[in-house]
């Protein structure tokens, strides 16, 4: 099963306010490693026309992206507001 299908099994209550934000897009452009693209277990970070974009909707709220972006510290990471986000049925 591919990742999209797996994430489709998970239950989310999606907030309209994003809880993940790239602080400065210019920094991503000069970032050589761009480790967020391959380490995020939900693939929230993707390249679109050469630019790193984040989609917070499928986020599993693990915290990986915030910690691995240690060179530029360019990710603003919060939990979604109360009542929103990933709701594990099993855990």
């Amino acid at each position: 099963m591919n990742l999209e299908d797996k994430l489709f099994l998970d239950r989310y209550v999606v907030d309209e306010i994003p809880h993940l934000r790239i602080i400065n897009l210019d920094k991503c452009a000069i970032c050589k490693k761009q480790q967020c693209l391959y380490t995020c277990p939900a693939q929230c970070y993707k390249l679109e026309e050469g630019r790193v974009v984040v989609s917070y909707e499928g986020c599993l709220e693990c915290g990986t992206c915030r910690i691995i972006c240690d060179e530029y510290k360019n990710i603003e990471w919060k939990y979604p507001r109360g009542g929103f986000g990933i709701c594990y049925k099993y855990g």
Binding site: M1, K6, P41, G91
Partner: peptide
């Protein structure tokens, strides 16, 4: 059958 996919630190 896969029921859930999770990630955690």
């Amino acid at each position: 059958k896969i029921r859930e996919y999770l990630a955690h630190l």
